[in-house]
């Protein structure tokens, strides 16, 4: 059932009026079933582009992404995505949002109810079933978005800076929830973030990416038992090391912007 994600020599070029922009270049990665992988880098490093390619929203210009012997060309419920902007349907209640993916698959009503109830329990959303998203806090909305994806029971979860808009405490709370769910359900998670600490707290493996063209700068295994202590020496050693790598790319990003500004 579970299959690795094979990212095979992926390139992505965006055609713009100012010329071609190479967003991704020579990306080769294999993500094992059940693995929690973070894509880390400054904005413009192509980490979201890579995630969108795996999701099937923007297929690569060259190379391919293969899951279960199939090349990914379009989005599908086997790769549930959690967006930074939540992307809940505001006209549906919490319960309806979670049920929607199952209704699309024409599941039985009884089965849908069962799954929705389980997920409401799992994410502590029981009292919010009939609320509309506008009545929920950011953290609550993101719980619903996670439940909506879990309802699909897809082996792979894609997360695009899902906690980026949340305050620090809510963020830590949801990170712990996510780890709990991941350990319980054994999903493969590909998680985009620009927070070094978040990536070390969560991931089995951190892929640091370079600024334009986006390539793999470092493929770092995080060999620390969970729950991880952000105050521990090992955590901070890794944080310092990855911080150095990310800042190099951030500097290239800043230089590139300065150059652009100078041309204008």
């Amino acid at each position: 059932m579970s299959s690795p994600i094979l990212i095979d020599n992926v390139q992505k070029v965006f055609k713009t009026p100012g010329g071609d922009v190479v967003a991704l270049k020579d990306i080769n990665l294999t993500i094992q079933p059940g693995e929690f992988v973070c894509l880390l880098g400054p904005s413009g490093c192509g980490k979201s582009t890579l995630l969108n390619a795996v999701a099937g929203f923007q297929p690569p210009s060259d190379g391919q992404i293969v899951i279960a012997q199939k090349t990914i060309r379009s989005p599908g419920p086997d790769r549930g995505m959690v967006f930074q902007e939540y992307a809940l349907f505001p006209w549906m209640t919490v319960g309806q949002n979670i049920a929607f993916g199952l209704e699309v698959q024409k599941k039985e009503k009884a089965e849908i109810d069962l799954v929705v109830n389980q997920l409401l329990d799992l994410l502590h959303l029981k009292d919010f079933r009939d609320r509309f998203p506008k009545d929920l806090s950011g953290g609550m909305r993101q719980r619903v978005a996670i439940a909506r994806v879990l309802a699909l029971d897809s082996p792979i979860m894609l997360m695009d800076e899902p906690f980026g808009a949340l305050d620090a405490l809510t963020r830590r709370n949801l990170q712990d929830e996510l780890l709990r769910i991941w350990e319980k359900l054994g999903k493969t998670i590909l998680f985009v973030t620009h927070s070094i600490e978040e990536s070390i707290y969560l991931a089995d493996r951190i892929v640091v990416m370079t600024y334009r063209p986006g390539t793999v700068k470092r493929d770092q295994v995080v060999d620390m038992p969970r729950p991880r202590d952000p105050a521990s020496p090992a955590f901070n050693d890794l944080k310092r090391e990855l911080g150095r790598l990310v800042m190099e790319e951030q500097q290239r990003h800043a230089d590139a912007e300065m150059k652009l500004a100078a041309v204008d």
């Binding site: 999701a55 989005p75 967006f83 992307a87 929607f100 699309v104 699909l152």
Partner: peptide, 16 residues
């Protein structure tokens, strides 16, 4: 567009 992307991700067809 985010709603359309989310819906496509959930496997929604054209009519739905």
């Amino acid at each position: 567009g985010i709603y359309l992307r989310a819906a496509r991700n959930l496997g929604v067809g054209q009519w739905t």
